[in-house]
């Protein structure tokens, strides 16, 4: 990883696995080219001096927004939106 601002096919394929997103060979090809251009444009981030600058996770920092520990049941049917169910369980794919 000599330069973090470059990307190649192999990396795009690896990312697609991490992201659980099946890509066709054409998509890999196309995205690799487009991402190269995009990252080249984003490289200007490197020029900003951020020594000692804190990251901003939000535009304005709030703190200590907490809820009290009370059990308040939600009245709903959680399975209403799925076909993948068996009894009151959600049904999912196998692991391997």
């Amino acid at each position: 990883m000599s330069d973090q601002w470059t990307i190649d096919r192999g990396l795009v394929e690896r990312i697609s696995k991490v992201a659980r997103l099946e890509l066709t060979q054409d998509e890999v090809e196309k995205f690799t080219g487009q991402l190269k251009v995009i990252l080249e444009a984003f490289r200007e981030l490197d020029d900003v001096d951020t020594e000692g600058v804190e990251p901003s996770f939000h535009p304005q920092e709030l703190s200590n927004v907490l809820r009290e520990d009370e059990a308040t049941p939600w009245n709903w049917d959680p399975l209403e939106n799925t076909e993948h169910r068996e009894g009151r369980h959600f049904k999912g794919p196998r692991i391997q």
């Binding site: 973090q4 990312i15 995205f31 600058v53 990251p55 901003s56």
Partner: peptide
């Protein structure tokens, strides 16, 4: 798809500091 790929990339180990965290500092 493009944004999922790019977004996943910017947070991956080895890239995260240069992209995600740097972007948050520039946001400041």
């Amino acid at each position: 798809k493009r944004r999922v790929i790019l977004g996943t990339f910017t947070r991956m180990a080895g890239y995260r500091d240069a992209y995600y965290l740097k972007a948050l500092r520039v946001r400041t």
